[in-house]
């Protein structure tokens, strides 16, 4: 078992002439919450898409528990215990809340004929109900996903990701668009998932209130390059970070 569950080594992504990510390195320790922050266009989501295999990096490697997954298809990641959510939500809009989560759980439902035919393998339904309860979605169990409000849709995506029973959870702006009360609940849920169940979490986030409260480590990206890394306090006081966010003049003021 490698000390770091996830390692990204010298990741470079070029879109034509634009270098979105440039020789970026990040190592996420097992059982921790690691935040990836940075101004808009810094390359956070691009990095995320490389890790979850939706983009192919120009150069560089992605290691999961010491195993190189850089050539794996996106669909293989669920089986390896990597789940993610999207910034702009990718739900099965016509299905109910329950069905959306069931689909995630199917990855572990096996492929035997009996299970294919019985369609709802025992144990899985209970697990799904449990996840709905944890994400406070039980009341919306039979609601069609597209009819949920934005906050609940985000929770549903999280519940579906958890149904995969992930080792590594990649969250792309989980708090964006949520109200303060919802952010507090999310804060508690993520901390609980990490501390009690040992799920390693890497999140991209702009809501500093959440990032600073729950992260063990923070990495700051600007123009595709890492400019700072450390504990939330280290990063908060790093002049180069303040400069990246507020501009040069403010930093020196």
């Amino acid at each position: 078992m490698a000390e770091h569950l996830l390692e990204v080594v010298d990741l470079t992504v070029k879109f034509g002439g634009l270098t979105a990510v440039n020789k970026f390195n990040i190592a996420v320790k097992r059982g921790t919450i690691h935040a990836l922050i940075g101004p808009n266009g810094a390359g956070k989501s691009t990095t995320f898409n490389c890790i979850s295999r939706f983009y192919q990096p120009t150069t560089g490697r992605v290691l999961l528990d010491g195993v190189d997954v850089t050539r794996m298809p996106a669909s293989a990641m669920a089986g390896l215990g990597v789940a993610r959510t999207f910034q702009n939500l990718e739900l099965f809009g016509e299905l109910t809340v329950f069905e959306n989560v069931m689909i995630g759980a199917h990855v572990h439902a096996g492929r035997s004929w009996v299970e294919v035919l019985s369609a709802r393998p025992p144990g899985v339904v209970e697990h799904v109900e449990h996840l709905l309860e944890r994400t406070s979605l039980t009341a919306y169990r039979n609601t069609v996903a597209r009819n949920l409000d934005f906050g609940h849709q985000k929770l549903l995506e999280l519940a579906r990701a958890l149904a995969i029973r992930p080792r590594l959870l990649l969250l792309d702006e989980p708090a964006a668009g949520l109200r303060n009360r919802e952010i507090a609940a999310l804060d508690a849920l993520l901390t609980d998932l990490c501390r009690r169940e040992g799920i390693t979490i890497l999140l991209v986030e702009h809501v500093m209130q959440l990032v600073m409260a729950i992260s063990d480590r923070v990495t700051v990206l600007n123009f595709g390059t890492k400019i700072s890394e450390g504990t939330p306090d280290d990063v908060r006081n790093d002049p180069s970070v303040i400069e990246a966010y507020l501009g040069q003049e403010m930093a020196h003021a």
């Binding site: 298809p73 996106a74 669909s75 293989a76 990718e90 739900l91 199917h106 579906r160």
Partner: peptide, 20 residues
């Protein structure tokens, strides 16, 4: 079911392990 999932949202389908 995998076919229906792909029909609804190919990205989400990949996310839950469907090989497109």
């Amino acid at each position: 079911r995998a076919m229906r999932a792909v029909g609804m949202n190919p990205k989400a389908a990949q996310l839950v392990g469907v090989d497109l």
